[in-house]
């Protein structure tokens, strides 16, 4: 059976557009709001990434750190993350949802236990920031066995031989990090150069769905639309921060922001 992630990419390809992938943090700014945000933006986004926050995130910039601290300060626990997923999937069973976070939380809950909870709540895949290839092989295999996608990452520093190995071991989606940066950095490489690298990876196996993330905003998204998918994260976290500052409703705000992003890649 094809995964809902694979089906989503097929659908987007037919529509001749990249998949729009959003990243928000579970529990930001409250558990209820983060669920409402997912429900709203899923009308425009094709795949939803949901961060399970960690308080020592070594690869995240200020925006996502801010969102993570907001969620953790509200007392968010891993079980709440799964609750949010469950409630979202009940309403949107076909919309792929990917959990993203750091390995220590999985390590503490136990890999098998974590995957069981992913499965029962309806998670479609996971991205683990600090579990690179080949150390992630065992966990990736466990994911596969449970028909969960394990999403491998590739970065501009990844040597070509290593890329080939990563692609070979990848599932339905691969994540290409656009530039040397933590999340939320300014795009310091031109979209043209990002795409040049991107197609180098794509040529290794043209059938693989490869998405680009890091530094993408409403300003840059349309220049990258020849990719299979585009991830926008920090811009959304920043929008939540700003709407809180201006006493606006973050849910309606995010709905608008994601709607606009989608328009730019149609």
């Amino acid at each position: 059976m094809r995964s809902s992630i694979a089906l989503t990419f097929e659908k987007c390809k037919k529509e001749k557009r990249p998949a729009l992938i959003t990243y928000t943090v579970a529990g930001d700014n409250t558990q209820n709001n983060s669920l409402k945000i997912l429900n709203k933006i899923s009308k425009h986004a094709d795949i939803l990434e949901l961060g399970f926050p960690h308080n020592t995130p070594i690869a995240d910039g200020g925006q996502i750190q801010g969102s993570s601290y907001r969620a953790l300060n509200n007392g968010l626990k891993l079980k709440d993350v799964f609750q949010i997923v469950k409630r979202f999937k009940r309403k949107n069973p076909d919309k792929p949802l990917i959990l993203m976070g750091y390995y220590n939380l999985i390590y503490q809950s136990g890999e098998n236990n974590f995957l069981r909870k992913c499965k029962t709540s309806g998670v479609d895949g996971c991205i683990i920031v600090d579990l690179p290839h080949p150390e992630n092989k065992k966990f990736a295999a466990k994911c596969k066995k449970k028909s969960m996608n394990f999403i491998q990452l590739i970065s501009p520093t990844t040597p070509f031989d290593r890329m080939k190995k990563i692609i070979k071991d990848s599932h339905d989606m691969v994540y290409y990090i656009s530039m040397l940066s933590t999340t939320g950095g300014k795009l310091k490489v031109s979209p043209k150069n990002i795409l040049k690298n991107y197609f180098k990876i794509k040529r290794i196996n043209p059938k693989k769905n490869i998405v680009i993330g890091f530094g993408i905003t409403d300003k840059t998204i349309s220049a990258l639309k020849s990719a299979n998918g585009l991830v926008v994260g920090s811009m959304l976290c920043k929008s939540i921060t700003n709407s809180l500052k201006m006493r606006q409703n973050p849910v309606t705000k995010l709905d608008k922001v994601v709607y606009n992003l989608k328009k730019k890649i149609l």
Partner: peptide, 12 residues
Amino acid sequence: GGNFIPETLKKP
């Protein structure tokens, strides 16, 4: 120990 690092740091 080990290397629980983001992909970007693998090569460096």
